[in-house]
Design a protein around this nucleic acid. Structure first.
Lengths: 344, 344
DNA sequence: TTGTACGCGTTATCAC
DNA sequence: GTGATAACGCGTACAA
């Protein structure tokens, strides 16, 4: 009696112990109704006894399907992406899929490499953030016919299904709110625009509305920051040093806004009396800052769940054009009328 | 000339195009120095031309190694776990590993099921949170000889390597701080204790120090909450309704503390003059609340990176007993002396 | 150095 | 219903 060499027992061991053939054992486990009750019973008992666990790799090899989805995010620890990921995983897990996740930290060449790696692993589908990706990568995905989904954005969409929202229109709403409060001098703390259509779309939304009111946004008023709280602090100091002092600071992310807000307070300013500050995302902590942050609410939870459905349908060959989600203005305490001006 | 059926080209296609055998092609790609330069060149060109991507499943099958690590977290969106996950992924990715992550939402039976699924997938190693797990699961892991790592806690450790810290000692420090400020009536907002040795250890740390000062913690002063901000709000209201009004609220998590703090402010209390509030974790937003939160600082980043190293070493058969990390008291504005009492 | 042949663990296709 | 057997795509002894 030869023992299995790697501790793990194989289907053939189960079959042998149950006194049936390999084929019957396989069928008993995968399609119980296609086998006689006594056979089923014997196989189940043997499997239990050997604590048999099917080998997913072998199965994937022959089935051409791994029940695995890959996700490539900018980062995993930004609260909005963490939320998204959590619910994406929940949705996928319920459907029997596992999620392989990775982060490119806003480096497109890293993203391409990570996707490459996921393709090797044989993921059944791919979830990406944004619509701006390496061109070669996109055509590879198309050629290989591997189902994929773009999320967080419907801006600058060129092809493929998206589950996201219009960052541009969302930012327009927020800008309109500031304009109505009388703000004319606006500075923007933005993430880098390269390879990031969300950053571009958000900025474009601001420019749109300002232009509509005959205002322009001088280039020096757009301050490029890294995506963390500290960068927000630094950005605010830069904004205050601008030749024409801004009455409002628009941050393209709540994390940046959190940093900017705390730095403003730290410098002795009163928000919003001295200066208004806005965010984007409405992370859970936005409402707990003081003053609570005026921002754009995005439902990362819904996006995650919808994305899990969408990618699964795509895998099943179900044509699915994605979904356009909402992103609404949430007015809180960090914005107010310009000092000495009336609300228009 | 038969075309590959699934769009994807196989190694045999590469070999054919390069005019060499399967073996040579394989060697050229995996062990370039074991093949003559012209052969190498030909194979590389052919692979490039066919945009050949090795099939990870087939490779894993024969190599008995998937270059994949599984992680099962409580949730992916709690900021501390999100941070941990991010840096765990970074560390693993650098070493060529992919990370499959999932969340059990504090349900141990779900955790067991998720681990089961990961084992089927053939992960090379497993990263778990905490030391309290299903007994059957642990013995399975031991029997199967699959490398695994416990994180976030060295409390109640029974076996296996940990990368974590003593939740109990950390909470002792925090409690000592409150006692020194004169607090005697303390209420605790805690997560459920079942299947969670971190929650137990944190509570034990409080009880330890109180006992040392001849104080006891009545059962009704321990309020069990879910792990989210809203639960913190609700918990604070319960705490205020206690027969003996607490002068300090200790929350076992920053998220709970954030909720409790905001509710206290909302109810018109002044923190810390009317009541002191503490957290645990020191998430990025803890210092931005008002008042900023007194808490225990835990470096999720370091824990993530160290964990990636530890699990990889474990896979390589390198004996590695894990690491005990620090967790230090950070005193900020949310704690102060009891009204009318001197600091002892 | 190179080619051949076998094995990895599973599912699917056939005859029986 | 069941049992042999051929795939799935790759790595690697072994022989040449």
């Amino acid at each position: 009696m030869e023992l299995p060499r790697h501790g793990r027992s194989r289907l053939s061991d189960v079959a042998k112990l149950a006194g049936v053939s390999l084929g019957s054992a396989s069928r008993a486990l995968n399609n119980p109704s296609s086998v006689r009750p006594p056979t089923l019973e014997a196989v189940r008992k043997a499997a239990e006894q050997l604590s048999y666990v099917p080998d997913g790799n072998a199965r994937s090899l022959v089935l051409r399907r791994s029940n695995t989805i890959g996700a490539v995010m900018p980062t995993l620890n930004n609260p909005v992406y963490a939320d998204f990921l959590h619910f994406l995983q929940q949705g996928l897990s319920e459907a029997g899929y596992s999620l392989i996740c990775s982060a490119h930290e806003y480096d497109q060449s890293v993203e391409t490499l990570l996707v490459e790696r996921l393709l090797q692993r044989g993921v059944d589908g791919l979830v990406l953030v944004g619509t701006d990706h390496d061109e070669a990568l996109l055509s590879r995905l198309g050629l290989a016919g591997i189902p994929h989904l773009f999320t967080w954005s419907t801006d600058e969409r060129s092809r493929g299904a998206c589950v996201g929202f219009s960052n541009r229109r969302a930012m327009q709403k927020l800008t309109r709110h500031l304009i109505e409060l009388g703000h004319r001098e606006i500075a923007v703390l933005s993430g880098a625009q390269t390879h990031n259509e969300r950053a571009r779309a958000r900025l474009a939304g601001i420019v749109d509305v300002m232009a509509l009111h005959g205002l322009d946004l001088p280039p020096e008023n757009v301050i490029t920051c890294r995506f963390d709280i500290e960068a927000g602090r630094k950005g605010l100091r830069e904004a205050l040093a601008l030749p024409r002092a801004p009455t409002a600071i628009m941050c393209t992310t709540d994390m940046l806004a959190a940093g900017a807000l705390s730095e403003a307070i730290h410098l002795g300013l009163t928000v919003p009396a001295d200066i208004s500050i806005t965010g984007f995302d409405d992370i859970a902590y936005a409402q707990m800052l003081s003053p609570p942050l005026t921002t754009i609410h995005v439902s990362a939870r819904e996006m995650g769940l919808r994305s899990s459905e969408a990618i699964i349908r795509a895998i099943h060959g179900d044509p699915h054009e994605g979904a356009e989600l909402g992103a609404e203005l949430v007015v809180r305490g960090s914005t107010g009328p310009v000092r000495g001006k009336q609300q228009s």
